[in-house]
Amino acid sequence: MRIGIPRALFYYQYFPFWKNFFEQLGLEVVLSSPTNKEILKQGLEFCVDDACLPIKIFHGHVADLIGKVDMIYIPRIISIEPKEYICPKFLGLPDMIRNSISNIPHIVDTELNLYKGKNHILDHILNLGKILNIHQTRILFAYFKAIKAQRQFEKLMIEKFVTPQDIIDKRLTFIENQTFKKRRNNIKVLLLGHNYNIYDDYISMGLIRKLRKHNIDLITCEMVTKSQIKEGNKKLSKDLFWTLGKKTTGTAYYFLEHKKVDGIIHVASFGCGPDSLVGELIEKRAKLEYKIPFLYLNLDEHAGEAGFDTRLEAFLDVLEGRKHIEDNISTYG
């Protein structure tokens, strides 16, 4: 049995878990190709045109799997943290796919709903077992194995300041050498944005590659501990109910407050509901209260790479200029 996993959306968050879980159960895990022109084209063709770019791209990845697998795993992700959601489009994702793409393989759309508590992950796992017709003990065994891999993955990102892609693609030497302490003088940029946007090299037009080429030290929400995020979010007057938004605000406020970054880049999809409010809250604070340079990059299918690069270069120039002045002051002062 081959189970397909679209290389999009929560692939960047949960792939180690999914891969280990399904492989442990004896299934062959097939990924769609990395996002490319053809996938984007198919996504645009199938998806309702008002959706945001990552949702469109997801449609493209599903289409890419047709003919290569026996079933496709598209969980209905309602909530992954108690009292929080991702966004309405995630709630309706399996429906959107069914409504828009015909002749697809069987969709495994088991609900993942941790709204009422983290232990409900077991409901998801056991229901998967029922659908796949696999005995409970085997399912639980696979679950424990998978959760271990997932924890290691999350820990590594925090300890080594590496991205999901570094780990999944096994860039081992890079990970080994990645330590901030040696290069204290590098510019530090906080890269905010949903994981499926910033880590998808095609969607983000190689943003991470480009920043690394400029010797920028990157920090993303995935590289920050939960307690740091919690501390940052104390600044909110009402709890946010979007998991990704909350991760973003927590990370941003934490680093703004501790003055640990030289600049902030916020990547958002055009038309993203949560980010339209969250982004605004952060940008205002960063600029008004902390005077930290802020670059807002809005992604959609029409964004041109040339303009994108120009804005990025200009922003990095500003950061370098500021750093230079700072260094000089501290040497002479």
């Binding site: 929080e84 709630l91 909110l236 007057s237 109910f241 509901g273 949560p274 339209s276 409010l277």
Partner: peptide
């Protein structure tokens, strides 16, 4: 009115409060 999500409406009030304050 407030709200608990998943849609934006639930956070309108907070954002509006900030806007008016600013």
């Amino acid at each position: 009115a407030g709200g608990v999500g998943p849609c934006r409406f639930g956070y309108y009030g907070e954002v509006q409060k900030e806007i008016l304050r600013d």
